[in-house]
Nucleic acid binder design. Sequence first.
DNA 1: CGGACAACCTGGTTGC
DNA 2: TGCAACCAGGTTGTCC
Length: 286
Amino acid sequence: MPELPEVETVRRDLQAHLVGRTIESVSIGREDILRSTDCARLVAALTGHEVLSVGRLGKNLIVELSGDTVVLVNLGMTGQFFVCEACAEIDEHAHLVAELSDGMRLVFRDIRRFGHIELARAQSVGESFTLRNVGVDAMSDEFTAERLEEMLAGRSALLKNALLDQRRVAGLGNIYVCEALFRARISAVARCGELAPEEVQRLHRAIREVLRESIAAEGTTISDYVTGRGVPGSFQERLRVYGREGERCRRHGCTGTITRIVQSNRPTFHCPECQSSGGMNRGESY
DNA sequence: CGGACAACCTGGTTGC
DNA sequence: TGCAACCAGGTTGTCC
């Protein structure tokens, strides 16, 4: 579920509502969500410590605590990480609950448990399990059109797969890759190496634009995602292709129909009519 | 290198 | 109604 805009929304909420608070107590319901640590060590690292900052790299949250410790959180598909009133209801999917010095509560909840929490030393976060394979963040200044061009140059891989690969550009998931390709009018079946420089520029702009707009809307809620305050986002209303199979293409002047295909076992939504760039010379049009 | 696939999980939806 | 099959925003590892 959570891609860059959702994780950035959570980060902003936690930056506002967690930083400066001290964690007074922690209870962990399931040890299998922990990486590179165990209940006892995580409880010790959190209890009595102040939250100094909440950062993000790609889809990962980086919570810096007093005591030279960093807690890394990846939300997987259904993970939620939010601050709520201490009286709010807690169910069996809340795997970590921390009481805060201001009387609020921090909850990590994850139905499918694809998410995880890792404990790392502040000076070696880069070598952590969670961050060691993460590339340049899609919203950072280092992610330029030139950088994107380098990533794609000469490669035969499916463009969509390359954009989903967190080791290259970090933060995009299935929804925003579909949306960015649509906005850039690039074929959903294009290969990395066949994009013209101008198409790479367009793709770069489209990626930044869709991520920025979604962050402004506090992310996309399809089923489980909530912000760091526990409420849904609203960008689902503004998706142009994702989940819109069978609908008329929303591009002005295009009479195409949004189509769902499967690539690498994951659904791709696109308009075969107006997403044509990058796929012109492959003889795959019909 | 690239892609296909399984695995890790639960729960909602679909179809017989 | 019941139940099996299938589907889902992610990541990692294996195999070919």
